[in-house]
Simulated scan of single mutants.
Amino acid sequence: MKKRLRVVYSGRVQGVGFRATVARFARSLPLDGLVWNRPDGRVELLVEGDEEAIARLLQRVGTSHLASGIESVDVHWEEPGGDLRGFVIA
């Protein structure tokens, strides 16, 4: 069953290759979505796919070199929209 997750990462997450790394991880999984820098210095991720693949993405981000810069993670499950195709850096 498809799920949709919105995640906002806070900390040292801009200017460190965060979006490119998340995109690389997501593209290696069967996931659709996008990741972008927010004006407030945080990074937002919107991802849709199988719940197990989403969990693997979050696990990879949380155990990668990016983890040391993450201060907090806000996670919000949403209804899948089916409007995302591929994975892009916005």
Rank of each mutant, 00 (worst) to 15 (best):
K3R: 13
R6E: 13
G49R: 06
R27N: 11
L29W: 05
H76R: 15
V47Y: 01
L45D: 03
M1T: 12
E71M: 12
E78Q: 15
R24F: 05
F18A: 03
R60M: 14
Y9M: 02
E44Q: 11
D50K: 10
A55N: 13
V7F: 00
R56M: 09
V47C: 06
V61Q: 06
E79C: 08
V13T: 00
T63E: 14
E52P: 12
A55I: 10
G33D: 07
G81Q: 14
E79Q: 13
I70D: 01
R19A: 01
G15M: 03
I70T: 02
G86L: 08
G11I: 01
G49I: 07
V75Q: 15
V22Y: 00
G62V: 07
V35R: 00
V61P: 08
V75L: 14
F25G: 04
L29S: 07
V35M: 02
Y9W: 03
D74S: 14
L84R: 11
L34I: 09
V8G: 05
G86M: 09
E48K: 06
L45M: 03
G17W: 01
R24K: 12
L57G: 12
I70R: 00
V75P: 15
R4W: 10
R27Y: 06
R27E: 09
E78F: 06
D83Y: 06
D83K: 14
E71Q: 15
K2T: 15
H76Q: 15
V43L: 01
V35G: 00
A23I: 07
Y9S: 02
P39I: 06
E79N: 12
E44L: 04
G11M: 02
M1K: 10
G62P: 13
S64H: 08
S28W: 04
T21S: 07
Y9R: 03
G11Q: 03
R85D: 13
E48W: 06
L66I: 08
N37S: 04
